[in-house]
């Protein structure tokens, strides 16, 4: 009992910060989403904000866009990361380690600006393509920013998240998976059989877990779509921000309701992740 108390006390400062900033913020957001904003005289608890959102086409356009961006970013990142990890697992190259760790340390905001400088119609890529004669002039470069398909946003996420998933996978591949592969080899399994029947099933929980984290992050992230996304429809967090920043204070509950819905989705994904991680731990044990 004393031991547990000690742990609680030691964790208390950290927990207090998390509790106040995170849980506190969530509670306030939730209360406001129910229409309780006393500063402007709204004190009655109602579900109007949610009703409003759920009957609003803009919200669903935004939701579809958000799911699309998160889904494609996660999918593309995962596939590329799997290939990268398989290619890198036998090497212990310092260079590849640096190349893959560098993007992880760079903030999303900086990454977004970087991507914009490279793939914009006045950017490096467009000029290079024009110089090489691939396109007539830089302006002919396909629009990859503020565009219909959110290519700029997805590119930024892919650039940032591929290294993350790759590193998680490399850890899995270089650990028990490689020992199990040796066993499979001496039992007569060829390269493809080893991948399909041993390596892939063994690493897939890690892949899924890393992908879920990426999905949850991209679903709730604000800065990249804010910088590189078109103005309508916007991604959900940007929509919530616009509602929040609007001059109409009465829209505050709507903004908070959107945030709560985002939190619910990412929370559900986090729960799924924790469950997977636990199952993984149990199986290893």
């Amino acid at each position: 009992m004393g031991g547990r108390l000690k742990i609680v006390l030691l964790l208390a400062p950290a927990l207090a910060v998390i509790g106040v900033l995170f849980a506190g913020g969530l509670v306030i957001a939730f209360v406001q989403s129910l229409g309780y904003v006393p500063a402007i005289g709204m004190t009655e608890l109602t579900l109007d904000a949610y009703r409003g959102i759920l009957s609003d086409e803009d919200f669903f356009d935004s939701l579809v866009l958000t799911l699309y961006v998160s889904g494609v970013s996660t999918g593309v990142s995962t596939v590329l990361a799997v290939l990268a990890a398989l290619a890198l697992r036998r090497s212990s190259g310092r260079l590849s380690a640096v190349v893959f760790q560098l993007p992880i340390t760079i903030p999303h905001l900086v990454a977004a600006v970087g991507i914009a400088l490279v793939v914009g119609q006045t950017g490096l890529g467009a000029r290079l393509a024009a110089l090489l004669g691939l396109i007539g002039e830089p302006g002919d470069f396909p629009a990859l920013l503020y565009d219909e398909r959110s290519v700029g946003i997805i590119l930024t996420y892919v650039w940032k998240e591929v290294p993350f998933i790759t590193l998680v996978m490399l850890a899995a591949l270089r650990g028990v998976a490689s020992d199990l592969e040796d066993v499979a080899r001496t039992l007569g399994a060829g390269a493809w059989q080893r991948f399909w029947y041993v390596v892939f099933p063994v690493i897939s929980p890690s892949v899924v877990a890393a992908s879920l984290l990426v999905f949850a992050f991209t679903f709730g992230a604000f800065e990249v779509p804010y910088l590189l996304g078109k103005s309508y429809p916007t991604i959900l967090p940007v929509m919530a921000y616009d509602e929040y920043r609007g001059i109409d204070l009465a829209a505050r509950p709507t903004a908070m309701a959107i945030n709560i819905l985002i939190a619910l989705v990412t929370g559900a994904i986090a729960a799924l992740y924790l469950r997977l991680a636990r199952d993984l731990g149990r199986r290893r044990g």
Binding site: V183, R185, T186, A189, Y197, V198, P201, R284
Partner: peptide, 18 residues
């Protein structure tokens, strides 16, 4: 190795967990 018909048992059991 896969064509040597030399089955190996390792220090750890290394059963396929899945």
């Amino acid at each position: 190795p896969e064509r040597r018909e030399a089955a190996m048992v390792f220090q750890k059991p290394l059963l396929f967990p899945h």
